[in-house]
Amino acid sequence: MNLNILDFERPIYELESKIEELKNFMKEQNIDLTEEIQLLEDKMVKVSETIYQKLHPWQILQIARHPERPLTSDYIQLICDDFLELHGDRHYGDDQAILGGIGLIEGNPVTIIGHQKGTTTRENLQRNFGMAHPEGYRKALRLMKQAEKFNRPIITFINTPGAYPGIGAEERGQAEAIARNLLEMSELTVPILVYVIGEGGSGGALGIGVGDRIIMFQFSYYSVCTPEACATILWHDTQEAKNASEALRITAKDLLEIGIVDDVLQEPRGGAHRNPVAMAKNLKQSILQNLVHLKTLSKEELIAQRYSKFRNTGQYLDIQINQSNQI
Protein backbone atom coordinates (compact mmCIF):
# COMPACT_ATOMS: atom_id res chain seq x y z
CA MET A 1 0.00 0.00 0.00
CA ASN A 2 1.23 3.42 -0.95
CA LEU A 3 1.72 5.63 2.09
CA ASN A 4 2.23 8.69 -0.04
CA ILE A 5 -1.40 9.02 -1.05
CA LEU A 6 -2.87 12.37 -0.14
CA ASP A 7 -6.33 12.41 1.43
CA PHE A 8 -8.07 13.98 -1.52
CA GLU A 9 -6.40 11.54 -3.91
CA ARG A 10 -7.89 8.54 -2.14
CA PRO A 11 -11.09 8.18 -4.20
CA ILE A 12 -8.98 8.04 -7.35
CA TYR A 13 -6.62 5.44 -5.93
CA GLU A 14 -9.57 3.36 -4.74
CA LEU A 15 -11.09 3.34 -8.18
CA GLU A 16 -7.72 2.54 -9.66
CA SER A 17 -7.22 -0.48 -7.45
CA LYS A 18 -10.75 -1.68 -8.19
CA ILE A 19 -10.00 -1.53 -11.90
CA GLU A 20 -6.79 -3.38 -11.30
CA GLU A 21 -8.67 -6.04 -9.35
CA LEU A 22 -11.23 -6.53 -12.10
CA LYS A 23 -8.50 -6.81 -14.70
CA ASN A 24 -6.78 -9.53 -12.71
CA PHE A 25 -10.07 -11.31 -12.10
CA MET A 26 -10.86 -11.19 -15.81
CA LYS A 27 -7.51 -12.73 -16.63
CA GLU A 28 -7.71 -15.46 -14.01
CA GLN A 29 -11.34 -16.45 -14.57
CA ASN A 30 -11.40 -15.81 -18.29
CA ILE A 31 -14.59 -13.73 -18.06
CA ASP A 32 -15.15 -10.65 -20.18
CA LEU A 33 -15.47 -7.60 -17.90
CA THR A 34 -14.37 -5.03 -20.45
CA GLU A 35 -17.58 -3.06 -20.17
CA GLU A 36 -17.45 -2.87 -16.38
CA ILE A 37 -13.83 -1.83 -16.50
CA GLN A 38 -14.58 0.86 -19.06
CA LEU A 39 -17.35 2.22 -16.84
CA LEU A 40 -15.01 2.43 -13.87
CA GLU A 41 -12.30 4.07 -15.93
CA ASP A 42 -14.72 6.71 -17.17
CA LYS A 43 -15.80 7.28 -13.62
CA MET A 44 -12.23 7.65 -12.50
CA VAL A 45 -11.52 10.31 -15.11
CA LYS A 46 -14.62 12.21 -14.05
CA VAL A 47 -13.86 11.93 -10.35
CA SER A 48 -10.32 13.10 -10.72
CA GLU A 49 -11.31 15.93 -13.01
CA THR A 50 -13.72 17.16 -10.38
CA ILE A 51 -11.16 16.80 -7.62
CA TYR A 52 -8.31 18.54 -9.44
CA GLN A 53 -10.44 21.32 -10.82
CA LYS A 54 -11.27 22.72 -7.43
CA LEU A 55 -8.30 22.03 -5.26
CA HIS A 56 -7.82 24.28 -2.26
CA PRO A 57 -4.41 26.05 -2.19
CA TRP A 58 -3.61 23.90 0.83
CA GLN A 59 -4.12 20.77 -1.27
CA ILE A 60 -1.99 22.20 -4.07
CA LEU A 61 0.70 22.78 -1.46
CA GLN A 62 0.51 19.08 -0.57
CA ILE A 63 0.99 18.12 -4.22
CA ALA A 64 3.90 20.56 -4.55
CA ARG A 65 5.52 18.87 -1.55
CA HIS A 66 4.58 15.35 -2.58
CA PRO A 67 7.43 12.97 -1.77
CA GLU A 68 7.12 11.40 -5.21
CA ARG A 69 7.01 14.66 -7.10
CA PRO A 70 9.67 14.71 -9.85
CA LEU A 71 12.82 16.62 -8.98
CA THR A 72 15.20 18.83 -10.92
CA SER A 73 17.39 15.80 -11.65
CA ASP A 74 14.39 13.88 -13.03
CA TYR A 75 13.48 16.61 -15.47
CA ILE A 76 17.09 17.05 -16.54
CA GLN A 77 17.25 13.35 -17.31
CA LEU A 78 13.96 13.44 -19.20
CA ILE A 79 14.53 16.56 -21.31
CA CYS A 80 18.28 16.56 -22.05
CA ASP A 81 20.08 14.67 -24.80
CA ASP A 82 23.22 15.08 -22.73
CA PHE A 83 24.02 16.63 -19.37
CA LEU A 84 27.14 17.16 -17.29
CA GLU A 85 26.87 18.27 -13.70
CA LEU A 86 29.38 20.95 -12.65
CA HIS A 87 30.33 21.41 -9.02
CA GLY A 88 31.37 24.08 -6.58
CA ASP A 89 31.31 27.83 -6.03
CA ARG A 90 35.13 28.22 -6.18
CA HIS A 91 35.04 29.91 -2.77
CA TYR A 92 33.90 27.53 -0.11
CA GLY A 93 32.23 24.33 -1.22
CA ASP A 94 29.75 22.46 -3.33
CA ASP A 95 26.21 22.86 -2.09
CA GLN A 96 24.26 19.72 -2.89
CA ALA A 97 20.96 21.56 -2.43
CA ILE A 98 21.52 23.25 -5.77
CA LEU A 99 22.37 21.21 -8.81
CA GLY A 100 23.81 22.77 -11.92
CA GLY A 101 25.49 21.94 -15.16
CA ILE A 102 25.58 22.09 -18.92
CA GLY A 103 23.66 20.06 -21.42
CA LEU A 104 21.83 19.79 -24.70
CA ILE A 105 18.11 19.96 -25.30
CA GLU A 106 17.28 18.90 -28.85
CA GLY A 107 20.79 19.93 -29.77
CA ASN A 108 20.56 23.33 -28.05
CA PRO A 109 23.30 24.02 -25.53
CA VAL A 110 21.89 25.20 -22.20
CA THR A 111 22.94 25.76 -18.62
CA ILE A 112 20.51 24.25 -16.13
CA ILE A 113 20.42 25.14 -12.45
CA GLY A 114 17.87 23.96 -9.92
CA HIS A 115 17.17 23.28 -6.29
CA GLN A 116 17.61 19.59 -5.64
CA LYS A 117 15.77 17.66 -2.95
CA GLY A 118 16.46 14.01 -2.19
CA THR A 119 14.35 10.92 -2.65
CA THR A 120 15.51 9.05 0.43
CA THR A 121 16.10 10.33 3.95
CA ARG A 122 19.80 9.89 3.46
CA GLU A 123 19.81 11.79 0.22
CA ASN A 124 17.61 14.48 1.71
CA LEU A 125 20.10 15.03 4.51
CA GLN A 126 22.88 15.28 1.96
CA ARG A 127 20.80 17.69 -0.12
CA ASN A 128 19.52 19.52 2.95
CA PHE A 129 15.93 19.08 1.70
CA GLY A 130 16.65 21.48 -1.13
CA MET A 131 17.47 24.33 1.25
CA ALA A 132 20.58 26.02 -0.07
CA HIS A 133 23.45 27.70 1.73
CA PRO A 134 25.23 30.77 0.33
CA GLU A 135 27.64 28.55 -1.59
CA GLY A 136 24.66 27.13 -3.48
CA TYR A 137 23.64 30.57 -4.69
CA ARG A 138 27.25 31.41 -5.50
CA LYS A 139 27.66 28.19 -7.46
CA ALA A 140 24.51 29.12 -9.36
CA LEU A 141 25.91 32.56 -10.14
CA ARG A 142 29.22 31.13 -11.29
CA LEU A 143 27.44 28.82 -13.69
CA MET A 144 25.22 31.63 -14.94
CA LYS A 145 28.20 33.86 -15.65
CA GLN A 146 29.78 30.93 -17.46
CA ALA A 147 26.61 30.54 -19.51
CA GLU A 148 26.73 34.22 -20.40
CA LYS A 149 30.34 33.88 -21.54
CA PHE A 150 29.46 31.08 -23.92
CA ASN A 151 26.15 32.62 -24.92
CA ARG A 152 24.07 29.71 -23.59
CA PRO A 153 20.52 30.25 -22.37
CA ILE A 154 19.91 29.54 -18.70
CA ILE A 155 17.08 27.43 -17.35
CA THR A 156 16.40 27.36 -13.63
CA PHE A 157 14.14 24.99 -11.69
CA ILE A 158 12.80 26.30 -8.41
CA ASN A 159 11.96 23.71 -5.78
CA THR A 160 12.83 24.76 -2.25
CA PRO A 161 11.03 25.36 1.04
CA GLY A 162 13.43 28.30 1.48
CA ALA A 163 17.06 29.22 1.91
CA TYR A 164 18.55 27.40 4.88
CA PRO A 165 18.29 29.27 8.18
CA GLY A 166 21.45 28.16 9.97
CA ILE A 167 24.54 29.51 11.66
CA GLY A 168 26.95 28.72 8.83
CA ALA A 169 24.56 30.14 6.27
CA GLU A 170 24.40 33.46 8.14
CA GLU A 171 28.16 33.51 8.76
CA ARG A 172 28.89 33.07 5.08
CA GLY A 173 26.38 35.69 3.98
CA GLN A 174 23.11 34.08 2.94
CA ALA A 175 21.56 37.51 2.43
CA GLU A 176 24.47 38.80 0.38
CA ALA A 177 24.52 35.70 -1.81
CA ILE A 178 20.84 36.01 -2.66
CA ALA A 179 21.00 39.78 -3.13
CA ARG A 180 23.99 39.44 -5.44
CA ASN A 181 22.15 36.93 -7.60
CA LEU A 182 19.14 39.24 -7.93
CA LEU A 183 21.39 42.06 -9.06
CA GLU A 184 23.50 40.00 -11.43
CA MET A 185 20.67 38.01 -12.96
CA SER A 186 18.88 41.20 -13.93
CA GLU A 187 21.72 42.03 -16.33
CA LEU A 188 22.84 38.69 -17.77
CA THR A 189 22.84 38.96 -21.53
CA VAL A 190 21.47 35.48 -22.24
CA PRO A 191 17.84 34.33 -22.05
CA ILE A 192 16.79 33.04 -18.63
CA LEU A 193 13.79 30.76 -18.21
CA VAL A 194 12.55 30.19 -14.68
CA TYR A 195 10.32 27.23 -13.86
CA VAL A 196 8.73 26.75 -10.46
CA ILE A 197 8.45 22.96 -10.45
CA GLY A 198 7.39 22.40 -6.84
CA GLU A 199 7.99 24.60 -3.84
CA GLY A 200 8.74 28.26 -4.38
CA GLY A 201 9.81 29.22 -0.88
CA SER A 202 10.52 32.93 -0.46
CA GLY A 203 13.93 34.54 -1.02
CA GLY A 204 15.54 31.13 -1.31
CA ALA A 205 13.47 30.55 -4.42
CA LEU A 206 13.90 34.04 -5.85
CA GLY A 207 17.68 33.65 -5.48
CA ILE A 208 17.66 31.74 -8.77
CA GLY A 209 14.37 33.20 -9.94
CA VAL A 210 15.07 36.36 -11.91
CA GLY A 211 14.45 35.73 -15.60
CA ASP A 212 12.72 36.61 -18.83
CA ARG A 213 9.90 34.14 -18.35
CA ILE A 214 8.64 32.90 -15.01
CA ILE A 215 6.55 29.82 -15.50
CA MET A 216 4.83 27.83 -12.78
CA PHE A 217 3.82 24.22 -12.90
CA GLN A 218 0.07 23.91 -12.33
CA PHE A 219 0.41 22.39 -8.86
CA SER A 220 3.45 24.27 -7.64
CA TYR A 221 3.34 27.20 -5.24
CA TYR A 222 5.35 30.38 -4.87
CA SER A 223 5.11 32.39 -1.69
CA VAL A 224 6.65 35.27 0.24
CA CYS A 225 6.87 32.86 3.19
CA THR A 226 5.48 29.43 3.95
CA PRO A 227 1.82 29.48 5.01
CA GLU A 228 2.95 27.82 8.25
CA ALA A 229 5.33 30.68 9.02
CA CYS A 230 2.73 33.25 8.06
CA ALA A 231 0.16 31.67 10.36
CA THR A 232 2.60 31.57 13.25
CA ILE A 233 3.80 35.12 12.77
CA LEU A 234 0.51 36.84 12.00
CA TRP A 235 -1.96 34.80 13.98
CA HIS A 236 0.27 32.92 16.43
CA ASP A 237 -1.45 29.72 15.43
CA THR A 238 -0.09 27.00 13.13
CA GLN A 239 -3.65 25.76 12.70
CA GLU A 240 -4.25 28.83 10.57
CA ALA A 241 -1.77 27.62 7.94
CA LYS A 242 -4.57 26.45 5.69
CA ASN A 243 -6.17 29.89 5.76
CA ALA A 244 -2.81 31.50 5.18
CA SER A 245 -2.28 29.35 2.10
CA GLU A 246 -5.41 30.93 0.68
CA ALA A 247 -4.79 34.50 1.84
CA LEU A 248 -1.22 34.66 0.50
CA ARG A 249 -2.33 33.79 -3.05
CA ILE A 250 0.39 31.25 -3.68
CA THR A 251 -1.02 29.13 -6.50
CA ALA A 252 -0.03 29.29 -10.15
CA LYS A 253 -3.52 30.44 -11.12
CA ASP A 254 -3.51 33.26 -8.56
CA LEU A 255 -0.03 34.43 -9.46
CA LEU A 256 -0.84 34.46 -13.16
CA GLU A 257 -3.82 36.67 -12.33
CA ILE A 258 -1.75 39.01 -10.14
CA GLY A 259 0.87 39.25 -12.87
CA ILE A 260 3.79 37.66 -11.06
CA VAL A 261 4.20 34.77 -13.48
CA ASP A 262 3.98 34.67 -17.26
CA ASP A 263 2.52 31.25 -17.81
CA VAL A 264 1.23 28.11 -16.13
CA LEU A 265 2.34 24.72 -17.33
CA GLN A 266 -0.46 22.17 -17.16
CA GLU A 267 0.32 18.99 -15.26
CA PRO A 268 -0.87 15.49 -16.10
CA ARG A 269 -4.09 14.47 -14.34
CA GLY A 270 -3.34 13.99 -10.66
CA GLY A 271 -0.09 15.94 -10.80
CA ALA A 272 3.40 15.57 -12.23
CA HIS A 273 4.20 12.60 -10.01
CA ARG A 274 1.49 10.54 -11.68
CA ASN A 275 3.19 10.88 -15.03
CA PRO A 276 6.66 12.43 -15.01
CA VAL A 277 7.27 11.58 -18.65
CA ALA A 278 4.21 13.49 -19.82
CA MET A 279 5.16 16.40 -17.58
CA ALA A 280 8.68 16.48 -18.96
CA LYS A 281 7.24 16.53 -22.47
CA ASN A 282 5.21 19.65 -21.65
CA LEU A 283 8.26 21.20 -20.05
CA LYS A 284 10.55 20.52 -22.98
CA GLN A 285 8.04 21.94 -25.38
CA SER A 286 7.68 25.08 -23.29
CA ILE A 287 11.45 25.52 -23.04
CA LEU A 288 11.97 25.20 -26.77
CA GLN A 289 9.10 27.54 -27.62
CA ASN A 290 10.27 30.23 -25.25
CA LEU A 291 13.88 29.98 -26.34
CA VAL A 292 12.95 30.36 -29.98
CA HIS A 293 11.13 33.55 -29.14
CA LEU A 294 13.78 35.00 -26.81
CA LYS A 295 16.59 34.27 -29.25
CA THR A 296 15.08 36.76 -31.69
CA LEU A 297 15.79 39.60 -29.24
CA SER A 298 19.05 41.50 -29.18
CA LYS A 299 20.99 41.53 -25.92
CA GLU A 300 19.89 45.11 -25.29
CA GLU A 301 16.23 44.28 -25.94
CA LEU A 302 16.45 41.21 -23.74
CA ILE A 303 17.82 43.15 -20.77
CA ALA A 304 15.48 46.08 -21.29
CA GLN A 305 12.48 43.75 -21.34
CA ARG A 306 13.66 41.91 -18.27
CA TYR A 307 14.15 45.19 -16.44
CA SER A 308 10.70 46.49 -17.21
CA LYS A 309 9.18 43.15 -16.33
CA PHE A 310 10.45 43.45 -12.74
CA ARG A 311 10.24 47.24 -12.67
CA ASN A 312 6.50 46.98 -13.17
CA THR A 313 5.73 44.46 -10.44
CA GLY A 314 3.81 45.73 -7.48
CA GLN A 315 0.45 47.28 -6.76
CA TYR A 316 0.28 50.59 -4.99
CA LEU A 317 -1.61 53.85 -5.00
CA ASP A 318 -0.18 56.95 -6.55
CA ILE A 319 -2.13 59.66 -4.82
CA GLN A 320 -0.88 62.56 -6.87
CA ILE A 321 -2.08 61.30 -10.19
CA ASN A 322 -4.84 59.49 -8.40
CA GLN A 323 -4.61 56.19 -10.13
CA SER A 324 -3.48 52.86 -8.97
CA ASN A 325 -0.79 50.96 -10.75
CA GLN A 326 -2.37 47.61 -11.33
CA ILE A 327 -0.30 45.22 -13.30
Binding site: I178, A179, L182, L183, E184, S186, E187, S202, G203, L206, G209, V210, Y222, S223, V224, C225, C230, I233, L234, L248, R249, I250, L255, I258, I260, R306, Y307, F310, R311, T313, G314, Q315
Partner: peptide
Protein backbone atom coordinates in the same frame (compact mmCIF):
# COMPACT_ATOMS: atom_id res chain seq x y z
CA UNK B 1 11.68 41.77 5.72
CA UNK B 2 9.12 41.51 2.95
CA UNK B 3 5.57 42.48 3.89
CA UNK B 4 3.59 39.27 4.11
CA UNK B 5 0.21 40.88 3.54
CA UNK B 6 1.10 41.65 -0.06
CA UNK B 7 2.37 38.13 -0.71
CA UNK B 8 4.49 37.62 -3.81
CA UNK B 9 4.11 41.27 -4.78
CA UNK B 10 6.33 42.04 -1.79
CA UNK B 11 8.87 39.34 -2.58
CA UNK B 12 9.29 40.66 -6.11
CA UNK B 13 10.28 44.07 -4.76
CA UNK B 14 13.59 42.42 -3.86
CA UNK B 15 14.24 41.72 -7.52
CA UNK B 16 12.92 45.12 -8.57
CA UNK B 17 15.14 47.18 -6.26
CA UNK B 18 18.18 45.00 -7.01
CA UNK B 19 17.68 45.37 -10.76
CA UNK B 20 17.52 49.15 -10.34
CA UNK B 21 20.75 49.03 -8.33
CA UNK B 22 22.41 47.00 -11.08
CA UNK B 23 21.66 49.81 -13.55
CA UNK B 24 22.74 52.43 -11.07
CA UNK B 25 26.04 50.62 -10.49
CA UNK B 26 26.64 50.37 -14.22
Amino acid sequence: GARMQEGMLSLMQMAKTSAALARYAK
